[in-house]
C-alpha cells in the first residue's frame, strides 16, 4: 500500500458516498445514469467474487464489501425507492455496446483462462467504460448539478491515482499488470474532458454547463 493507492481508494469511497448522500438528501436521483450505476454493480459483483476465495487483508475485505453494498443501495434508490425521480428519457446509452465487447475482449485477452480470472478481467474492462452512459447523459442534457460533478470528479480521480500507484509499484516492486494499466489509462482518458470542465467551471463556482 502506497500513498497513491490509499488516496485512490479514499477518492473512490468519497465518490460513492457523495452519490448516496446526494440521492438520500434530495430524495432524487435526477441527473444520475441508472445504466452507469447498473454497470458499476456488475463490475463490483464480477471483480469481488474473490471475497469468497482469497483473503488479502481486513482493509481489502471491508472495502470490497463497502463498494458492493453502496452499489446495491444506489441501485435500490434508483430502481426502487426513488424510481419516480430517475430521468429515463435522457439515459438512452445502449449498454450492450459496452457489455458485449468487454465480454469478448476478456475471453481473448486475460491472464489465465479460468472463470475467476475472466470475470476479473471483464470487470476491469467494463469499469473503464462504465461511466460512458453517465457522460452521455450529461452531454444530452448539457449540464450537471454541482454535486453530480463532484461525484464524477472523485470517481475519475480514483483511477488516475491508481495510475500513479501502478507507476510506483513498477518502480518499487517491479510489479505490473498490463490489463489493469491499459484499462486504467482508457478510463482516465474518458474523464479528461470532464476534468477540464470541472476545473475551469465548477471549481470557480459555476455550474457545469456544456457549450450549446
Amino acid at each position: 500500500m502506497n500513498i497513491f493507492r490509499l488516496a485512490g481508494d479514499l477518492s473512490h469511497v468519497v465518490a460513492v458516498i457523495i452519490l448516496l448522500l446526494k440521492i438520500w438528501k434530495t430524495r432524487s436521483c435526477a441527473g444520475i445514469s441508472g445504466k452507469s450505476q447498473l454497470l458499476f454493480a456488475i463490475v463490483y459483483l464480477t471483480r469481488y467474487l474473490d471475497l469468497f476465495t482469497t483473503y488479502v487483508s481486513l482493509y481489502n475485505s471491508i472495502m470490497k464489501i463497502l463498494f458492493l453494498s453502496a452499489s446495491g443501495a444506489t441501485l435500490y434508490f434508483m430502481y426502487g425507492k426513488f424510481r419516480g425521480t430517475y430521468d429515463h428519457n435522457h439515459d438512452t446509452f445502449r449498454i450492450e455496446f459496452l457489455l458485449i465487447p468487454c465480454g469478448l475482449l476478456s475471453l481473448v485477452i486475460n491472464h489465465e483462462f479460468t472463470v475467476m480470472e475472466i470475470l476479473w478481467t471483464f470487470s476491469i474492462y467494463l469499469e473503464s467504460v462504465a461511466i460512458l452512459p453517465q457522460l452521455f447523459m450529461v452531454s444530452k442534457t448539457g449540464e450537471a448539478e454541482s454535486i453530480t460533478s463532484h461525484y464524477l470528479f472523485a470517481l475519475g480521480s480514483y483511477r488516475a491515482l491508481y495510475l500513479l500507484n501502478w507507476i510506483h509499484r513498477y518502480i518499487a516492486e517491479s510489479h505490473y499488470d498490463l490489463i489493469a494499466i491499459f484499462a486504467g489509462i482508457v478510463q482516465t482518458i474518458l474523464y479528461c474532458d470532464f476534468f477540464y470542465l470541472y476545473i475551469t467551471k465548477v471549481l470557480k463556482g459555476k455550474k457545469l454547463q456544456l457549450p450549446a
Partner: peptide, 10 residues
C-alpha cells in the same frame, strides 16, 4: 515473472 491479477487492488 508472469504479471497477474493482484487481489489486493480494488
Amino acid at each position: 515473472e508472469e504479471p497477474s491479477n493482484d487481489h489486493d487492488e480494488l
